[in-house]
Design a protein around this nucleic acid. Structure first.
Lengths: 350, 350
DNA sequence: CGACAAAATGATATCGATATCAAAAATGCA
DNA sequence: TGCATTTTTGATATCGATATCATTTTGTCG
């Protein structure tokens, strides 16, 4: 009458196994795991020892089953499938969703009518909250459609969050400022700037950061060195050629994102302008392309994976508040950026 | 004596709600959801209708709790953090892991000693199986260390799987062949080929596919047009310049991956060689860079996200087999590739 | 020292889905 | 038609973790 369980076959260690091993109840183990204060030190230590001894790790699925928030559905509505960017968001998002036992629903849309349809599909699917990656994070109509039906919205990586939405972002202004200071410190005075797509909020904010960097160093802005890009590689090629074909080209080019910077570098390679000896180039975002190209790109790292994670946590919290009837205010979170000083920037030439 | 549940507040719809609505037992609903055959048509329809009416979706966490496989831990051991590639793998992997209620543990390593340590860490953490993305998928020592302690291994995107491991991959030979045929069909006869890093198994297999394409079209191989790259952008720059600086340059260049193709295109841009009018370029893998650059790259699409998903499923199955005491044989899965005919290839010039 | 409040610990019920076995209905066959 | 067999459906127990409430232990103070 053997009644072997998976447990007996060297399988998963549960909280109960730990409890037995430590000679306590499973509740005590649960409390230790969750850092609940009401456990005395000797017991806590005994439990911790058993956890280590048995190599216990928690079964998240079971936790979220009991926690009751298991059914939470979070929509992610995106329009431009910039593959790598979205991937990183989803990477963090899925990871966190798994931890919380929530479900992520991906929905794609194009124009405005298509946005309406996509929102309807999400509402139909019964989502409890929606995350909007760029550029949709700044779309007032989309936000309104969602808030009107009482669905909380989170704007991811917007530079100027709308008042009624939660947001997870970095400080684009400070990022651009740091990058500009970096170039100036290297001795650059003629710095070209490639603006991004004017419909995205970071475009303007990054430009303002650049201007601030110039002004605080007492460098006058040469408007001829500021050109309009679109955040695309192609626009980087075009504006890069425009800047480098000048009689008096800049010694450094600040592109508002990495794709455009990669375009600039392709042009420079073609003109046999060596980087960084003759020209410094920097980008923004630290997308995969930044470390793919050669020389690797100096840029501002956005912790996109972490931002994806944080977005899910944040909207999850708001959903929880709403479900428990509490009034819920939009939450804002500012993540830290990092200046990645790589090989595409160097001292200004004589 | 109110005893409100989250359910009552417009929250989650459970299988029981559906059952009540349809006037059946929850087991029947479960069977319908899981496409179990033993449900008669009228009942199935009634249940399906209720599911739609109540907008039911399953709580995955609860499923995997009961399924008992909730505690499965799968390690992902990688060495070269090729950001975007790994991201896509993890994207699919996490998604599938969430579905199965499994846990993914990421572990990074460098040299051989570091591999040993990483393997030890994973074993310490009690993983039940390990996924090896490239290039570790071909590392015999790593595979041996794991199989010796009875941990099943899955090689992801290897071209020649070791006999004792499971594998998820595409047919690199057929992919390269398809791409070569495509170029030949466009009228190209002088085709440059850039090999990849010789320590990676796909390198040779892709080259063989290329050779097959030439020979079946009756084109003699010009060894002067075959150069050695390293799968890096930089090696694409260097070998690209080498090929294009010749007196009689090729009309098309087949780079063994996208990064190198991007390097070639950067050189071409610099030499003002227009693509695809004067030169066709193609890559392999369809990484994000392929659709970032301009013109967009013709390449072979590897369904990496799906492969990540499939890897988790496959190793999960093997783990299940092992845990239930069944003998378990390595499983191999061949995914379909897609020829992405984009703008970097065109008819051969006169 | 004893009574009472506060803290620590345990017992039990529960989350949502499914495995398992039992009961009911449908089917086959003589 | 009647009985055996198969298919369909339902009742109940269970997965692992936690909320809740009961119980035990500890601490405090008159």
């Amino acid at each position: 009458m053997k009644r072997q369980r998976m447990n007996d076959q060297g399988g998963t260690v549960t909280i109960h196994d730990v409890a037995r091993h430590a000679g306590v109840s499973s509740m005590t183990v649960s409390r230790v795991i969750n850092k609940n204060v009401n456990v005395r030190e000797p017991l806590r230590e005994k439990v911790m020892a058993s956890i280590k001894a048995l190599k216990y790790t928690m079964n998240m699925a079971a936790r979220s089953t009991r926690a009751g928030m298991g059914g939470v559905r979070i929509g992610v509505l995106y329009s431009h499938p910039s593959a790598s960017y979205l991937n990183e968001i989803m990477l963090g998002g899925l990871d966190q969703a798994a931890r919380l036992g929530a479900q992520l629903l991906l929905e794609k849309c194009g124009g405005l009518q298509s946005q309406k349809n996509a929102v309807n599909r999400l509402v139909e699917a019964g989502v409890d909250g929606v995350i909007l990656p760029p550029p949709l994070c700044d779309s007032a109509p989309t936000v309104q459609m969602l808030t009107r039906v009482g669905i909380p919205v989170l704007a991811l990586a917007t530079a100027r969050p709308l008042p009624e939405v939660s947001a997870v972002r970095i400080d684009d202004f400070q990022g651009a400022l740091a990058l500009t200071r970096h170039l100036i410190k290297l001795g650059h005075k003629r710095i070209g700037f490639i603006k991004g797509n004017p419909t995205h909020t970071p475009t303007e904010v990054r430009y303002e950061g650049f201007l601030k960097g110039l002004s605080e160093a007492g460098i006058a802005l040469d408007e001829a060195l500021v050109v309009q890009g679109q955040f695309t590689y192609k626009s980087g090629l075009e504006t890069g050629r425009e800047l480098l074909d000048r009689k008096d080209p800049p010694t450094a080019i600040f592109a508002s994102n990495d794709d455009m910077a990669a375009g600039v570098m392709a042009v420079a390679h073609g003109l046999k302008i060596s980087i960084p000896e003759q020209l410094s180039v920097c980008g923004f975002d630290d997308t995969p392309v930044a470390s793919t190209i050669w020389p690797q790109l100096t840029t501002v790292h956005q912790p996109i994976v972490a931002m994806g994670r944080s977005s899910v946590s944040t909207i999850f919290e708001r959903i929880k508040e709403l479900k428990s009837g509490e009034p819920s205010r939009p939450a804002h979170q500012l993540m830290k950026f990092t200046l990645m000083d790589r090989d595409s920037t160097g001292p200004a030439p004589e």
